[in-house]
Design a protein around this nucleic acid. Structure first.
Lengths: 345, 345
DNA sequence: GTGAAAGCGCTAACAA
DNA sequence: TTGTTAGCGCTTTCAC
């Protein structure tokens, strides 16, 4: 190709100096309009492509932000990622994706080798649970960094108040008159932040206890935050010999969808036989008619990106974020328990 | 932090030269074992972090591969992405994600500004439809490049034979005795490669024609390759006044899931009332009992990554790929049409 | 097996 | 407004 070298080439052809060319190309104000035009023109003709490595070496900035995800195939992470991506792109930054999970996941390598290679100017971390060594590595990362979704000790974090949202969801069911409520949540998702599932379960228990209802241990199932897991968990619930539950609080919409499919497949109806409430605000919710406590992960991603971007530019570091918003969206998957099902308690 | 400078620092402390330190750190053979050990040790103590910008400038390689997706929230792209990611990570490469779609999508910027910044050593492009300007830009990209999923003129491509897989799926229904078959596919997905939906529809029509069955235009619907789209399309089909269809060939599993939900919601059964066959091999298939022609996008991603990686290392460029494999997975969403529904034709 | 020196392509003072 | 001069931190001949 033509683009032999770069800025130097343009300098030659225009009879200007490298510096002026550089300034012109970056649109700095201190360049005569004619000069700038000439430079741009010859740059185009040459098919000039800047070297981000050279610029990065000279400035110490790569104009790249790293995003760490525990896995890509979850609606929440994807949506946050989209938000981060939109914001970064608007700012002219590129996004390096560090996927800790999935087949071939290799946290050690990701952390030790990739992340810390001075390759990124900042980092947005989505719901990852760190090991001690990892936490130590991150400590050395002297760039803006923010965690989204699931509090992580020592790093500032943004997301919904998981306990609060779970309490709200549970209360929603309690208010309808349910007392026999089960919970489908998550547990030891490899590499995923435990805070989220734990806080949601805790919120559930808090609300139930406050209402004076005991929850048997086997009414709290692990749906692994996946559609399939939600389906399986609900089947387990339905297979119970003397089924008493009238409602289920599911910790994510994807699991809730699976749960709904399981209920219908068993020949039961939602909400007549079983009420289901989720968390998230997944775009497929309307199809299933799922009532849910919706959050806005896209917005959370945007905010996270905007924050680190501002800090890269020298803005003072925020030490904490306000909790992200959430709201109840009623779509009919919850209702008062049928009289026949009313618990004797 | 401690990591003031880098290699120079280590050179000082060990009394060696920068060159030797560099060689030791990269594990080159021409370094005495003791020397190498000393270097690594002090590097660790210093918390040394290499500068990828400097290395990249010196070598002309960034050890980064770009992946372009039309949107992140589709199972197919996510899965290919996972495959690419796994392979890149194993090779010590980082992945820059270029998302053309989504809110805030800005193709122009992505192409012109980011992609061509010499930031990546190779590119894997997933099912994107290029404009003329974009094609021209890509022509200038003198690095390994491969398109996955949907042929694109002028660039080598890998994926299933979309016409063939559609013919196979349609024949599957025909072989069961169906004649009144509808098709839910895709159309003008913004920025997505048109080849895939078009080829699948064409395959469908080819098989139908070969079997001597005409297909009314309104039996070919646009499901936008999404769950919601599939659901909506199926509802349209079910709302037909004198419904005659007994089977639907859906061009993707996600749409097929939506279609199944719609059928069941209408009080009909799959496959007794309506048979449904999909394409993809989505992991949620078992839950819905979806019969599908499965491909392996993860593997396609791995292959694509492996290919460009090999070429970065100097391997001769492959000019074409064999078609990706696919196979029928029967799960019970298809059956012979019920006698009552048998078409008179 | 190790060192010296040049340079990758750009930016950033400092002058002019 | 433009040019000069140093680097940014690493790799890479070419000597030794």
């Amino acid at each position: 190709m033509i683009s032999v070298s770069g800025i130097q080439e343009i300098a030659h052809l225009t009879g200007l100096s490298k510096s002026t060319v550089s300034r012109a190309l970056r649109g700095l104000p201190s360049v005569a309009d004619v000069t700038a035009a000439t430079v741009r023109k010859t740059a185009d003709e040459l098919g000039y492509i800047p070297s981000s490595a050279a610029a990065g070496l000279a400035t110490g900035r790569s104009r790249v932000v790293g995003v760490v995800v525990p896995t890509i195939n979850r609606w929440f992470y994807i949506t946050v990622l989209e938000g981060v991506d939109a914001e970064l792109r608007a700012a002219g930054y590129d996004l390096i994706l560090f996927n800790l999970g999935g087949r071939g996941g290799d946290r050690e390598r990701v952390f030790h080798r990739s992340i810390l290679r001075k390759r990124v100017d900042a980092m947005v971390i989505l719901g990852v649970a760190f090991g001690d060594a990892e936490r130590e590595q991150l400590r050395r990362f002297e760039h803006p960094m923010v965690v989204v979704g699931g509090a992580e000790e020592g790093v500032r974090h943004m997301g919904v108040d998981d306990r609060a949202i779970a309490i709200a969801a549970t209360n929603h069911l309690l208010d309808l008159g349910h007392t026999q409520i089960a919970h489908i949540g998550g547990e030891d998702e490899s590499g995923m932040n435990l805070a989220v599932p734990l806080d949601r379960r805790e919120g559930f228990l808090t609300a139930m206890t406050a209402a004076g209802h005991a929850v048997p241990g086997h009414w709290m199932l692990n749906g692994a935050f996946s559609f399939r897991g939600g389906y399986a968990a609900m089947r387990t619930l339905l297979d119970e010999p003397e089924r008493a539950i009238t409602a289920v609080f599911v910790a994510s919409d994807e699991m809730a969808f699976g749960a709904i499919v399981a209920v219908r497949e068993a020949g039961l109806r939602v909400p007549e036989d079983i009420s289901i409430v989720g968390i998230d605000g997944h775009e497929n919710g309307p199809v299933y008619g799922l009532t849910t406590f919706a959050q806005d992960p896209f917005e959370q991603g945007v905010t996270a990106a905007r924050t680190v971007l501002a800090e890269i530019e020298g803005a003072p570091a925020l030490s904490a974020f306000p909790s992200a918003r959430y709201e109840l969206i009623e779509r009919g998957s919850t209702a008062a328990p049928a009289p026949a099902n009313l618990s004797p308690a």
